[in-house]
């Protein structure tokens, strides 16, 4: 994985941990019309955009830059 910065792997692990929102899995509230667990994961999916933007900018491997 030497083509990629060292922080990429911990970042991926952190994103996996945040994905597993175990603490609220029994919550049945509706927020903005959506079940709160579903809303959490919609927000999670949309929040990946700015995170991936940083990843693509900062972790783009050098060997691809010439192509």
């Amino acid at each position: 994985m030497s083509d990629y910065p060292r922080w990429l792997f911990p970042l991926a692990l952190l994103l996996i941990a945040v994905h597993l929102n175990y603490w609220m899995w029994d919550d049945v509230r509706l927020v903005f019309g959506l079940p709160v667990n579903l809303l959490y994961h919609v927000v999670y999916s949309l929040a990946l955009y700015p995170i991936l933007r940083v990843v693509v900018r900062k972790a783009w491997p050098r060997f691809l830059s010439d192509d």
Binding site: D26, V28, L30, P35, N37
Partner: peptide
């Protein structure tokens, strides 16, 4: 609308709007 439809589901089928810890 979304809120009314989900409220109807959640009244009768609570397990469908949770994940289950």
């Amino acid at each position: 609308g979304l809120s009314e439809a989900m409220a109807l589901v959640s009244e009768t089928n609570t397990e469908l709007v949770a994940v289950g810890k």
